[in-house]
Design a protein around this nucleic acid. Sequence first.
DNA 1: TTATAGTCGAGAATCATTATCGGGCACCCG
DNA 2: CGGGTGCCCGATAATGATTCTCGACTATAA
Lengths: 149, 149
Amino acid sequence: MQGVVSTALNGRRRQRTTRQGGLVRDQLAAAEGFRSAQSVFSELRAKGEVVGLSTVYRHLQALADDGEADTLQTPEGESLYRLCGQSSHHHHHLVCRTCGRTVEIEGRGVERWAAQVAEDNGFSEVDHTVELLGVCGTCAAAAAAPGRR
Amino acid sequence: MQGVVSTALNGRRRQRTTRQGGLVRDQLAAAEGFRSAQSVFSELRAKGEVVGLSTVYRHLQALADDGEADTLQTPEGESLYRLCGQSSHHHHHLVCRTCGRTVEIEGRGVERWAAQVAEDNGFSEVDHTVELLGVCGTCAAAAAAPGRR
DNA sequence: TTATAGTCGAGAATCATTATCGGGCACCCG
DNA sequence: CGGGTGCCCGATAATGATTCTCGACTATAA
């Protein structure tokens, strides 16, 4: 996983390679959907790994800052993280509110729309939040056949 | 949970008319953009009105439940509220991150796009969050001339 | 190996929000 | 118009997530 990082950190992360950092990253990689800092913490604890809560938060935020992880907020105000392939690639998510499965989606149309609306109203430096929350086909099917045994 | 609430509530759940309820609503109405529960609370206090923090939260949520107020979350996890003309009217917001000024926007195109993406991925019952956060023309101009006196 | 500086991590501190619960007041009934 | 009933108010405690603090630790370079 982690190879030689050493000196030449050309735009790359500046953190030192540590056991804990790898654990947080691995735990996130093993998950299918978004996870909260709290759950990453307790899952690691459950696996017997001793890591500090602060450390989990630190690494999660570092990953997010580096663009290696995506982040979103639940309506309850909890932050969720998820490892993400490309750091330079802007995209949005379609998340299943039942199983947490996540589909990354591109929204060229939305980007354009957002930019247009912003311009029409004289706004600049506009950021946008676009998240879709629904029920995936699998979960919908499961919910539709409740009597099954 | 709640049984019969006084007079016939024609689709509109009305709380008992109290001085405090009116204050919270008025304060929200007087504001130009979104306000946090905390700021509504301190503004009322500043005006000399004695209202409990819990009460502010209660009324703010009641307004949101009734669809009389819109709500959104800041990236810091604070909930903001704003009185809103139509309860049945679905729309989004373009908010100035400097002064809080808000423009309500309609996004027929976005709605369509969201529905399409959801369908393409087999998702149903899809809800979407779309918020635009930027800097309005006035604030941008102010920021561009920092040395001015 | 040693020096050095970035990391750890447990617990305290913050902050917004929610729950509690005794006391008060609005509204209905007679 | 006076009483009773139950919702509402509001100070305070509790909760829960996230951040801060700071001494101990350890990966790295020389």
